[in-house]
Amino acid sequence: MKALGTPEVRELSYAEAIREALDIALDRDDRVFLMGEDIGVYGGAFQVTGDLVEKHGPDRVMDTPISELGGAGVAVGAAMTGMKPIFEFQFADFAALAMEQIANQAAKARFMLGGSVSVPVVMRFPAGSGTGAAAQHSQSIEAWLGHVPGLKVVQPSVPEDAKGLVLAALEDSDPVMIFEHKILYKMKGHVPAGYYTTPIGKAAVRRTGANLTIVATSVMVWRAIEAAETLAAEGIDAEVVDLRSIRPMDRETVLESVRKTGRLICVYEGVKTLGVGAEVSAMVAESDAFDFLDAPIVRLGGADSPIPYNPQLEKAVVPQVSDILVAARDLTGGRI
């Protein structure tokens, strides 16, 4: 028998975990409502909102016209005036249509107006490649938004965090952008029942290790763990740090790990150039952890290319488990 107060733990998919967070949020707070294209009876392009409209009604699970700029901006305006909207982009790529409201309005309003307003808006972005959706439906644009002061940007990799970060985003007074990887939506994992939050700006060590640190985001966390298991059999003990939040970034957890292992690989799906890995690398290089490095830092990121359609090409432009293995063996000389 479970002790009182122990949260019930069940298996839910990543999409179900987000839906549960949205459901809880809608139950808890009248100010919360959802907006997005086809999130009502259709259930969302990736069935994240599912049947929420049946329980909460079309006034709280609002289908918008195909107007990303208008829709996102309405969410910004509603957030400035007392509501807590959660806006779903159908695909992260479509945020390009709304960048004005995200980068010029939501991100800057508090600062530009001297702290007199808050924009507690939450935006959700189904992102990433691997679904054969090609160049305009597969991008990882988190670094675009991560470059904008005023925004917070998170990338849950497991169902538990997907739920906890949605609920944490709603507690936050600032605009929070949640990047959800499309190929994670069906992935199952333990998810505590009820209300809880996952802290924004805090990384999670998914696997401890002594010889090598792999800092990864989103789906790359799983590839890093898979690689780490293979490497363990070869005597290379890799630590996997799931960044979870790219703005703010958990500097201490990353530096602490690098101080311990002396080697660093950054793995992320976004374009390598000027990306998340560049920031992580620079953070280490600029700190005392640099003195602990026994080898150069390695970045494994997306190619400088749009995402191609052909499945072999699509895989070729983003890091795979095999790429991590090659880099890790190279970095450690195949042994420790």
């Binding site: 208008g70 996102a72 901006g73 309405v74 910004v76 305006g77 509603a78 005036t81 409201q101």
Partner: peptide, 9 residues
């Protein structure tokens, strides 16, 4: 859109 959002609120 901000004005429309304020009206929605």
């Amino acid at each position: 859109p901000i004005a429309v959002g304020a009206a929605l609120s």
